Simulated assay, not measured.
Amino acid sequence: MRRVEHVMGFPVSLRVDDAGFPGSAADGLFGWLREVDARFSPFREDSEVSRLDRGELDAGRLSPGLTEVLALCERYRTATGGAFDVRLPGRRLDPCAVVKGWSVQKGAELLRAAGARRFCLNAGGDVAVAGGPWRVGVRHPEDAGRLCAVVEVTDGAVATSARYERGDHIVDGRTGRPATGLLSLTVTAPTLTEADAVATAAFALGREGIDWASARPGCEVFAVTSHHRVVRTPGFPVAGDSAVRSRT
């Protein structure tokens, strides 16, 4: 089965290699992602996130999903000393950096529950896979037509934070200014919940985020600094000789 839909502002592609996988399970996956967008998007005025931000909801009466997401946001805010923060002064509450990976990981779990054993779920370049090995390309941060690495993953996730799609959209919460020090940072982790959040949090930290991310249990890192230096942790699962030579 192969299927692509535009959800949450980006394309989501699904490939399932298991024979006889039910189309209804794919319907359930994309239905779940549309529900997440409706409930958690800060760009929808009637979403739960927007209503909480306006003070229309009591914090003690939030849905279990939003409660879980906000707890994850607080965990990473504390772990980064405030560099990662979804409640920046003068800006609306924006938990998207956690919601994306969290919701797609939940979607991957729905696929497993429906019987999928070999699949690739790609949400705007952040990927959850099972039953590999799968090869996932890491885009060159300054040339959309090139890859700077190819990752080989059997069961797990790959996520990248960078400037190339949305410019300086990641803010260092300690300064209130766009994060500097990195052009891109890719994380592999057991789940996309962690890979996506760690990649964003590490990017917000800047150059120090490389060491911070690599110290997270189960995480491996491939980064390109603003000075075009490539840094790769020893366990980063590069396929063959695909990566730019690391200079540490």
Rank of each mutant, 00 (worst) to 15 (best):
R3M: 10
A243L: 12
L62K: 08
G65S: 15
L147I: 01
G235I: 13
K100Y: 07
F21S: 04
M1F: 10
F10P: 02
G218H: 11
G176L: 09
A195N: 13
R118S: 11
A223Q: 01
G240D: 11
T180N: 12
T188A: 14
R245P: 15
R118E: 06
G125H: 00
V238K: 05
L88D: 12
P42E: 13
R112S: 04
L205M: 15
L29P: 00
R61G: 15
M8S: 12
L52R: 05
R92W: 02
A130C: 11
T186D: 04
R247S: 13
F222H: 08
L93R: 01
E5V: 11
G218K: 06
L66F: 04
V99P: 14
S24R: 14
R34Q: 09
G125Y: 01
A123P: 02
M1H: 11
A159L: 05
V104S: 15
G28T: 02
V86I: 15
D37L: 03
A149V: 03
M1P: 05
G181S: 10
T248E: 12
R54E: 02
D46Q: 07
V4S: 11
V158C: 13
V49D: 11
E68I: 10
E48I: 05
D46V: 03
V98F: 12
R207L: 15
V104T: 07
P141L: 01
D85N: 15
V187A: 13
A157E: 06
L33Y: 02
W212R: 09
L66K: 04
F30W: 01
A128P: 03
R54L: 03
E45M: 09
T193Q: 15
T180Y: 06
L52H: 06
D172N: 10
P42T: 06
G173D: 01
A19M: 08
L205H: 12
R44A: 08
D172T: 04
